[in-house]
């Protein structure tokens, strides 16, 4: 390798992240990007909000495999995915209000990743009042299929929009937390938090 070639390779240049931010904003504004995502800080760790023009499509914990989630969104919905932190402002303000103890009405949701059975289960879950819990069997009954406690557990475990669709309010029949996609510690934190703010 010649010396001059090395010098060209190593020429310092300005940071290009400003250009990337402007690109992302324009892509979301003119609709070229169908899916945008950005991080939101929260007491249960950084969350990644994935949004479309319809609303919140998915919410991921920092322990989730974000690459896999984005690949699945690319396949199921659209590969026109651009990281755009400015596009998740509404989700951020809802999460802030929730964690501050005064939850605003839930943000608009894009239910494209939710199956019909999951929809019934999650609708039943969303009806559980803040500060309360139900068992998998109870939610299965509310979803119209009392014998489907296991399928209900799976549907909740695959909830693409946790926290906002409160699958954490579903526990085992003996009152134990049972399981949570974001880990039991997060489930416990969310339930403790909700007990505090509901009184």
């Amino acid at each position: 390798m010649s010396k001059i070639a090395d010098r060209i390779r190593n020429l310092p240049s300005d940071d290009h992240t400003g250009a990337l931010e402007r690109f992302a904003r324009r892509a979301v504004e003119d609709g070229s990007a169908r899916v945008a995502y950005g991080e939101v800080e929260s007491p249960i760790g950084d969350l990644t909000a994935v949004v479309t023009s319809r609303g919140l499509l998915a919410l991921a914990f920092e322990t989730d495999d974000l690459d896999r989630i984005m690949e699945s969104v690319a396949t199921k919905l659209s590969p026109l995915i651009v990281r755009t932190p400015s596009a998740v402002g509404r989700v951020r303000s809802w999460l802030d209000s929730y964690f501050e103890g005064h939850p605003q009405p839930a943000p608009g949701l894009d239910r494209s990743l939710i199956t019909p059975f999951q929809e019934r289960v999650l609708t039943a879950t969303a009806a559980i009042p803040l500060g309360e819990v139900r068992t998998y069997g109870q939610v299965a009954s509310l979803a119209g299929n009392p014998k489907a406690a296991r399928a209900t557990g799976r549907a909740l475990g695959a909830n693409p929009i946790p926290v906002v669709l409160p699958c954490h309010r579903v526990v085992a029949a003996d009152g134990s937390l049972h399981g949570y996609a974001g880990g039991l510690d997060r489930k416990r934190l969310l339930l403790d938090h909700e007990r505090t703010i509901s009184v």
Binding site: I8, L11, S13, D14, H16, A19, L20, F23, A33, Y37, D67, M70, E71, V73, A74, T75, P79, L80, I81, V82, R83
Partner: peptide, 24 residues
């Protein structure tokens, strides 16, 4: 056809694209 998320292209190639354009 399964295309990767567009952002993965941005993450991989934005810097060399920028440096190329900087030179041009």
């Amino acid at each position: 056809m399964n295309l990767p998320p567009f952002q993965t292209l941005v993450d991989e190639h934005a810097r060399p694209l920028y440096r190329f354009l900087r030179g041009m």
